[in-house]
């Protein structure tokens, strides 16, 4: 199972790097969303996978009675998803606004903040 997910992370990263090499900012952003999911899976798998063992403590006990899933990576992934959600919503909005006022999505045509100097 770990191997399978590790391969999946690899495929996701490869796909997203391909997307992120594009000049189109929107493609770059899609790549970023994909790679952030790869990172989340990576955290998840590095906490070791245990099938069908929710980390719940039965009533009356102070500690889980048998081997349960590691709850910490799940909490971390959840936090990372929430943060990523906010950041990407913002980035998407920014790219959209940028497209409206700059009229382009190509990163090498965005030279407003760094104008070409004469003689270059």
């Amino acid at each position: 199972m770990e191997l399978l997910i590790a391969i999946m992370v690899g495929v996701l990263v490869a796909a997203s790097v391909y997307l992120m090499l594009a000049r189109n900012v929107l493609r770059f952003l899609f790549g970023l969303i994909l790679i952030s999911n790869a990172a989340n899976l990576l955290i998840f798998v590095s906490g070791r996978l245990t099938a069908e063992a929710p980390p719940l403590i039965p009533e009356g006990a102070d500690a889980p009675l048998e081997l349960v899933a590691n709850a910490l990576p799940q909490a971390l992934v959840l936090t990372a998803i929430v943060i990523g959600f906010g950041l990407f919503a913002f980035a998407l909005m920014l790219v959209y606004r940028g497209y409206q006022s700059l009229g382009t999505l190509m990163s090498d045509e965005m030279r407003l903040a760094e104008p070409k100097e004469d003689g270059q």
């Binding site: 992120m20 900012v25 770059f28 952003l29 970023l32 790679i35 952030s36 790869a38 990172a39 989340n40 990576l42 955290i43 998840f44 798998v45 590095s46 906490g47 070791r48 910490l72 990576p73 971390l76 990372a80 950041l87 990407f88 913002f90 980035a91 920014l94 790219v95 606004r97 940028g98 006022s101 700059l102 990163s107 965005m110 030279r111 407003l112 903040a113």
Partner: peptide, 28 residues
């Protein structure tokens, strides 16, 4: 501002994801 902002946001998000992956591997 939007022009500079797009570059700032995208490159910083890449670093964020590397940071997160590093955390995952270190925890593992």
């Amino acid at each position: 501002q939007l022009d500079g902002g797009i570059k700032y946001v995208t490159l910083n998000l890449v670093s964020t994801i590397l940071f997160l992956s590093g955390i995952g591997l270190l925890y593992g």
